[in-house]
C-alpha cells in the first residue's frame, strides 16, 4: 500500500499514542506506529530518538531500562499523567482540524 509523508508536528502525537497503549522501546515505537497506521506511516528513523528525548525532557513520557523480548537490555517508554493529558488535547485538536478541513474541502458551489 502507498506510504504517506508524516505531516510536520504529528510525530510527537503519534509517539504519545503509541506508548499510551503499552510500554515500548524505541524500535518498538517505530513498529507500533507502522502497525496502528495500517502500514501507511513510515517514521524517519533518525528523527525518532531526538523526539523521544524531547518528550522525556518535557515530562510527557518516562523511560526505564528493562529486558526486551529477545533478552536484550532496552529502554522502555511509558506515558506520564502529563503525557496522557497532552495526548487528549492533541487528539481533540487534530479531530477538530481534520473535520474543519474536510468540511472545507467537501464544500460544493451550491453551499456557498
Amino acid at each position: 500500500m502507498e506510504k504517506s509523508e508524516l505531516l510536520p508536528g504529528t510525530l510527537d502525537m503519534l509517539i504519545l499514542k503509541a506508548v499510551s497503549l503499552n510500554p515500548l522501546h524505541g524500535y518498538g515505537v517505530l513498529l507500533r506506529i507502522r502497525q496502528i497506521s495500517g502500514e501507511a506511516l513510515e517514521i524517519p528513523q533518525g528523527s525518532l530518538y531526538p523526539a523521544l528525548y524531547r518528550l522525556e525532557h518535557q515530562g510527557l513520557i518516562a523511560a526505564e531500562w528493562g529486558q526486551s523480548e529477545n533478552n536484550r537490555r532496552a529502554k522502555y517508554y511509558t506515558l506520564t499523567a502529563a503525557g496522557r493529558r497532552r495526548l487528549r488535547e492533541e487528539t481533540a485538536g487534530w479531530n477538530r482540524l481534520v473535520s474543519a478541513i474536510s468540511a472545507a474541502l467537501n464544500t460544493t458551489s451550491e453551499e456557498v
Partner: peptide, 16 residues
C-alpha cells in the same frame, strides 16, 4: 552511555 546503548539496541532489533 545510555544513549549509545539505546541506539545500538535499535540497530540490533532492526537487523534481527
Amino acid at each position: 552511555n545510555g544513549m549509545t546503548e539505546e541506539l545500538h539496541s535499535h540497530i540490533e532489533h532492526y537487523a534481527q
